[in-house]
Amino acid sequence: MSELLAKKDIVRLVDQWLAAGRRVAGPQCVNAGDPHRQTDLINYTWLTKVEELQLDGFVRPTNTIKEVVFPRHEKLYGYEFKGKRIELVPAELPTAEQIVVGARPCDAAALHILDAVFNWDFKDEFYNRRRELTTIVTLACSKHDDFCFCTSVGAGPCDKRGSDVLLIPLDGDRYEVRCLTEKGQKLMAGATTTSSETAKEPEGPPTRFTLDALGEFLAAGYDRPEWPAVTRRCLGCGACAYTCPTCHCFDIVDEGGASGGARVRNWDACQFTMFTAHASGHNPRSDQSQRQRQRIHHKFQIYPDKFGELLCTGCGNCSRNCPVDMGVLPVLKTIAAKS
């Protein structure tokens, strides 16, 4: 037996959520009607009306859902100068319930992976509060492209990690609904119909490399001579990190004027020269190949050693959005072949 939901009923549900004042994010074509653009740009965005929601017809959005729990810019606390004193003003914690609809499994799984690092030695209350307030409705992928490699990193088009509800396309008009958490059950209560029909789980992309081979290469030494050659074309921007569902580095800066300001955290990326620049002027990762090596080691060795899961869901965004078509996939394919 299964629970089913018609596509038009999802639209109706989203409409209800919006009418009830909930924040709802979902994939949207953000440049529709722009005369200057040649291709559709699909991004997860906060919806203002249900008509903006676009569930299918593309592989995956260009950005990720990490923004709903880990915004690119966040105030940690304010400060005010009061004569010779400095008064700290706590930032208000978020209170709005939020729903992500039509999330890709590679996005939702990333939040599950990130829970570990945001609750490691320090419990990040901003992240945790947003996470508690968020319900994620995932849509299993029926399409993939040459950049997708979820199946090579232990994920896949029906990955359950991080999802509260998983929708699997049954036919053009209906989805099988799998409520995976209490939050998901609550969200879908009364909306679905029971049926004897079940959806076939879609197949993912072919395997691009094996984790065993990759692990062997990384374990065989840090200073492998292959790094400069396989990463030379990297230009050192942050497009990979900022469109990665699992990259979570941030920088803390003070922004303000003579009377006060705020301490904020902004996304940061390990491919920037400045990321590791010391105040002395010394930079322990002075070469792009060292920064690329760090990125791969962090995702495929350091994070799994520490938290038990890869810091990658195989979404392919890093390569898809790379100005020189690099990202991690070509690097992983090359080094896995060299192990």
């Binding site: 690119r72 230009l235 921007c237 942050g238 900022y242 469109t243 996304w267 400045m274």
Partner: peptide, 26 residues
């Protein structure tokens, strides 16, 4: 409002060759 400051625009630009970009001055 969609800009995430990944600086891909700067990094691909042949004219952006400054050793330290003004946005990196802290």
């Amino acid at each position: 409002s969609r800009c995430v400051k990944c600086y891909a625009c700067r990094q691909v630009c042949p004219m952006c060759y400054c050793r330290q970009c003004i946005v990196d001055k802290n």
